[in-house]
Amino acid sequence: MDKIENNKAWFLVLPVFVIVAISAIIPLMTVVNYAFQDIFSPQDRYWVGTEWFESVLADDDLHGALIRQFVFSFVILLVEIPLGIALALAMPARGWRASLALVLMALPLLIPWNVVGTIWQVFARADIGLGGWLVNALGIPYNYTNDPVAAWLTIVVMDVWHWTPLVVLLCYAGLRAIPDAYYQAAAIDGASAWKVFRYIELPKMRGVLLIAVLLRFMDSFMIYTEPFVVTGGGPGNATTFLSIHLTKIAIGQMDLGPAAAISIIYFLIILTLSFVFYNVMTRMGTGERA
């Protein structure tokens, strides 16, 4: 095999390696250290072995937060991916309408997370919020501050509003990259709109859909700011997701050891599921069983 290799290229990767080391590897190693110690300060600490893992794994609050987190991510993927594909298919392909649609789609993505939470906290309030008032005026009792179902709906709708545009933009880019020749061949064969979607557009979007599913899964699994601003994890613990539970332990109670143990479990779940998603989606349609 005649393969030319230039190892000097590794030096070009060095800045990225340094940034990743500082922003990811060092904190990860610190968390692993903390997970096995009772930490009062860097100097005042005691080795406790696997005690924190045993206690957090038996903690009902963690089990509840974990179940809520999985349900939330599942619902988000179930809604945002098909909706994103549908909107991308419905968007104009060219002209000023395409530009306008793209700008409108990008707008929610430009708003910071805490501002999104504040907007929806006010908008969905039953007393002064336009959205909450409207739903109640329609005769549907709605108050996210004391009804867990309403709180869940508010957070899901908020996330769909905030992040579906990302799926739309990714799918739109994938759709625009399909050469016209494919559509011409399908027209000659008399293919229906469904068959064009099923056999041309969907397979051609596989790459961008993989990115969309991974990004939306990881982001929704780590969601913190928006539900914290809107519901603060309530009513009760109804919207206490993993990251909110973790913050309560780490910052609220300053239990750094148990918080570190939860962080490691959290990290392992995201790592495992991302690996599974990645493998299933990259092998889908290639003839290899995933």
Partner: peptide, 15 residues
């Protein structure tokens, strides 16, 4: 930075 990482021997050996 290294002090704040609260290193212990078992974790150090693991990494």
């Amino acid at each position: 930075l290294i002090r704040s990482m609260a290193w212990t021997m078992p974790v150090g050996l693991f990494f």
